[in-house]
């Protein structure tokens, strides 16, 4: 045990480990805040869908020889988020079917484009690392960490200032609209924030595991807590602690970072299910 602690303290001296922990905490914070609204709106798989769109956008940047693919990725992901999350009863193209279609189509298109325009020899590695994240979070530059900080400040501020409006819109959109809340505007803002967080969170766990990061903490919190505020706070705490623990376990035992985080989140979810069941009795 002391050996493990000693190793851990040694590892914590490395700058890239510190960056990983900071960025991990911040991204976990942002995605869990949004996770609660997404799960309650029954859009749990949108994290997965939008991350595939981001993957496709990054693939599109290859034939265009862009050095920085972030603007294009953000643009396309935001556009899809707005399309999928827009409100209104008469839209035929919504719901889980739309998410599924966009998710699978962009994954396939992205891979096709990469194959056709492969400028690097190691195409499958590029794809694999984008999908699974590999060790991206442990290879962050200070610039990216600052970007995470800026994003988190924006997301947390947005959430705190508009918390009650978000609740009103998520709980009952019809009532909110009828009583004068500008529902369209809030849905649009939410869609943009979700898209931005997902594009940045791809650094943490990769495309395939985004849904877990968005969904598991919220679901765990929903098992035990009963008010919107307590569910949100619990979700954030679970997400941050789970991410930190996942990163620490993965650097100690040499497992991939993303999947370890998800495994920890799953364990926490099972624990909360048990707690919830015991409380119910």
């Amino acid at each position: 045990m002391s050996e493990i602690i000693k190793n851990l303290l040694d590892y914590l001296q490395f700058p890239f480990v510190q960056y990983a922990l900071i960025a991990g905490t911040l991204i976990a914070l942002c995605s869990s805040l949004l996770g609660v609204t997404l799960v309650l709106k029954r859009y749990s798989l949108i994290g997965d869908g939008l991350s595939h769109v981001a993957f496709c956008a990054m693939a599109c940047a290859l034939p265009l020889h862009m050095t920085n693919d972030m603007p294009l990725t953000l643009l396309l992901t935001i556009a899809c988020a707005v399309l999928l999350l827009r409100s209104g009863r008469n839209t035929r193209f919504t719901g889980d079917a739309a998410v599924a279609m966009i998710s699978v189509a962009s994954l396939a298109l992205g891979y096709l484009i990469i194959n056709l325009c492969a400028s690097s020899a190691n195409v499958s590695a590029d794809v694999c690392s984008t999908l699974f994240g590999s060790t991206s979070i442990l290879t962050l530059t200070p610039v990216k960490v600052w970007l995470c900080v800026a994003l988190s400040v924006v997301v947390v501020t947005f959430f705190v200032l508009f918390y009650h409006k978000i609740f009103a819109v998520v709980f009952d959109e019809e009532f909110a609209r009828a009583t004068g809340v500008r529902v369209e505007m809030y849905n649009l803002l939410l869609a943009i924030v979700i898209a931005v967080v997902i594009v940045l969170a791809m650094n943490l766990v990769g495309s395939l595991l985004i849904s877990a990061l968005v969904v598991f903490p919220a679901l765990s919190a929903l098992r035990v807590y009963k008010s919107f505020l307590s569910v949100t706070i619990c979700s954030v705490v679970v997400s941050v602690l789970g991410t930190l623990l996942g990163i620490i376990i993965s650097i100690l035992s040499g497992t991939p970072v993303g999947v370890t985080i998800v495994a920890v989140d799953l364990a926490v979810f099972i624990l909360f299910c048990i707690i919830g069941a015991c409380k119910g009795k």
């Binding site: 590892y11 890239f16 480990v17 060790t135 442990l138 035992s253 991939p256």
Partner: peptide, 17 residues
């Protein structure tokens, strides 16, 4: 003596710093 995850990250870090 380090885990695979750390080794890979450190090599990357070496190359950029």
């Amino acid at each position: 003596t380090m885990s695979k995850t750390m080794v890979y990250s450190e090599i990357n870090f070496m190359r950029s710093n």
